[in-house]
Simulated assay, not measured.
Amino acid sequence: MRNTLIAMVLGASVLPIAAQAAAPASSDAVRNEVTRQLERYERALNTSNVDQVMTLYAKDAVFMPQNSQPVVGRDAVRAAYRQIFGQIKLDVDFTIDEIQPLSPDWAFARTRSKGTVKVLAGDGKASPEGNQEVFLLHRESDGQWRFARYIFSTTNPPAAQ
Rank of each mutant, 00 (worst) to 15 (best):
R2H: 03
R2D: 07
R2L: 02
N3H: 15
N3V: 12
N3L: 09
T4N: 04
I6R: 14
A7S: 11
A7I: 02
M8H: 12
M8D: 11
M8C: 09
M8L: 10
V9K: 15
V9P: 08
L10H: 10
G11D: 04
A12C: 13
A12L: 14
S13R: 10
S13E: 13
S13L: 02
L15T: 00
P16N: 05
A18T: 01
Q20A: 14
Q20E: 13
A23T: 01
P24Q: 15
A25K: 15
A25M: 14
V30C: 11
V30S: 13
V30M: 15
V30W: 15
V30H: 14
R31K: 15
R31Q: 10
R31A: 08
N32P: 11
N32R: 09
E33Y: 13
Q37F: 13
Q37T: 11
L38G: 12
L38E: 11
R43C: 10
A44H: 11
A44I: 10
L45C: 14
T47E: 14
S48D: 10
S48P: 01
S48M: 10
D51L: 13
V53H: 01
M54E: 04
L56I: 15
Y57G: 02
D60I: 05
D60T: 03
V62T: 13
F63R: 00
M64G: 08
P65I: 03
P65L: 01
P65A: 02
P65Y: 04
Q66P: 07
N67G: 12
V71K: 00
V72F: 03
G73R: 03
R74N: 08
D75E: 11
V77G: 06
V77N: 05
A80V: 05
Y81F: 12
R82S: 11
R82A: 08
Q83N: 10
I84H: 03
F85C: 07
F85N: 03
G86S: 13
G86F: 13
I88L: 10
I88C: 04
L90I: 08
L90C: 10
V92Y: 06
D93C: 08
F94K: 05
T95K: 01
T95C: 01
T95Q: 09
T95P: 02
E98S: 03
I99L: 01
L102F: 02
S103K: 06
S103W: 01
A107V: 00
A109S: 09
R110K: 14
R110P: 06
T111C: 01
T111F: 03
R112P: 07
R112Y: 04
R112F: 07
S113A: 11
G115A: 12
G115E: 06
T116V: 12
V117A: 00
V117S: 00
K118T: 15
K118S: 11
V119E: 05
L120W: 07
L120F: 15
L120K: 14
L120P: 11
L120A: 06
A121R: 14
D123E: 12
D123L: 09
G124R: 07
E129P: 08
G130N: 12
N131R: 07
Q132F: 11
E133D: 11
E133F: 12
V134Y: 01
F135K: 02
F135N: 00
L136A: 03
H138C: 04
R139S: 01
S141R: 07
D142M: 08
G143Q: 08
R146K: 12
F147W: 05
F147I: 01
F147E: 00
A148R: 12
A148T: 03
A148D: 05
Y150P: 04
Y150T: 03
T154Y: 12
T155G: 13
P158I: 11
A160P: 15
A160D: 13
